[in-house]
Design a binder for these strands. Structure first.
Lengths: 189, 189
DNA sequence: GGCATCACAATGCAACTGTATGGCAAAAGC
DNA sequence: GCTTTTGCCATACAGTTGCATTGTGATGCC
């Protein structure tokens, strides 16, 4: 076999360029040539690693999701074993929220993908499982009756805070204040 | 002066077509020709009423916002004078949430516009005022201390529920259950 | 009745889109 | 050393995009 190249690395390099373009100019500015230029490679190479644009988009979406998962698990494991439920919840929600500038870009991309998936049922299916899983996990950590609705509410609040952060309506401090106030209600005493 | 035409009506007709296209196939499918075809008019006419595509988009965004406002005030005035705060809040949040199929389309469009505005600071400014206004209104209705953070949390929860509804993760009943559970916490007793 | 003004249509144009295709160099297996 | 496979590039292509231009009726004012 000839020249061996790490396909995954190349694809990730391209996906990163895609995300940069999407974060700066929106998903509609994402074209093969723009992505290639942003990545500093030829348009032909992008085509070589992704047969179609849809395939490239799907891969980039998967990267965004995986990065989020990594951020969460990293933040959670940093807590050590058996952390108190409230701290655990606060930690992984804070890890998911776009609180700094860099994750703000990621969130912009995620928002663009969300709108993209809203009219493409096939792409939306992947997102569904993620939240359902997250919700039952949060519900298991919440005290008292009505934990299920409370978990749904907490996650919805998280998404909403994410939206406000992306659109620049909230600062990181404001968002965390709102989150903490909500947690105060969920963890009485 | 020649043929007098109701400009606003024509522009609204076109904006409605734009929203239909965006709801079905996403914002990136919104082109002058597609919108014209959907509206059943010539592409030249669209150009006649909107000098540029951006102007058309801005007008459509304004229409979406205005429709939301109308929905809210209609639902609220239906309550009569001096409604109890909790009912008032629940009513206008329910009016804003995409609970039926038709408003689901509107919400898809709103989501697309949100992503659109996320990378266009000029378009995002209009949204900011709206939520700030809404937040102080809600805060004035909430009891006890920390009303400001609680109002922010409630609105964030609303946005998150909207997202979940649009992406098909929640049914209308589930969303309302989560909302009511949250209101239970905000209005103790 | 002339005529300016407006509504609308048709066409053209350069730029861009995603994808197909062909070619070329390099590297491994024989 | 030759062949084959692979990485990558360049170009071509048909279709679409936003926008400019020009033309054509129709209308209402004077």
């Amino acid at each position: 076999m000839p020249k061996k190249v790490d396909h995954l690395q190349r694809r990730t390099l391209i996906a990163d360029a895609l995300m940069r373009v999407a974060a700066e100019r929106g998903l509609e500015a994402v074209s093969l040539r723009h992505v290639a230029a942003e990545a500093g490679v030829s348009a032909g190479m992008v085509q070589h690693y992704f047969a179609t644009k849809d395939e490239m988009m799907a891969f980039a979406m998967a990267v965004v999701r995986d990065r989020g998962e990594v951020r969460v698990t990293a933040a959670v494991t940093r807590l050590g074993a058996e952390p108190p439920p409230r701290l655990l919840i606060r930690t992984f929600i804070a890890a998911l929220l776009p609180l700094d500038e860099q994750s703000g870009d990621t969130a912009k991309v995620a928002l663009a993908f969300l709108a993209y998936a809203a009219v493409r049922p096939a792409a939306a299916a992947a997102l569904r499982d993620d939240t359902a899983q997250l919700r039952s996990f949060v519900a298991s950590l919440l005290p008292g009756p009505g934990a299920d609705e409370a978990a749904g509410g907490l996650l919805a609040l998280m998404e909403g805070l994410g939206l406000y952060l992306v659109s620049g309506q909230y600062t990181a401090e404001q968002a965390l204040a709102v989150l903490d106030a909500h947690l105060d209600r969920l963890f009485p005493g």
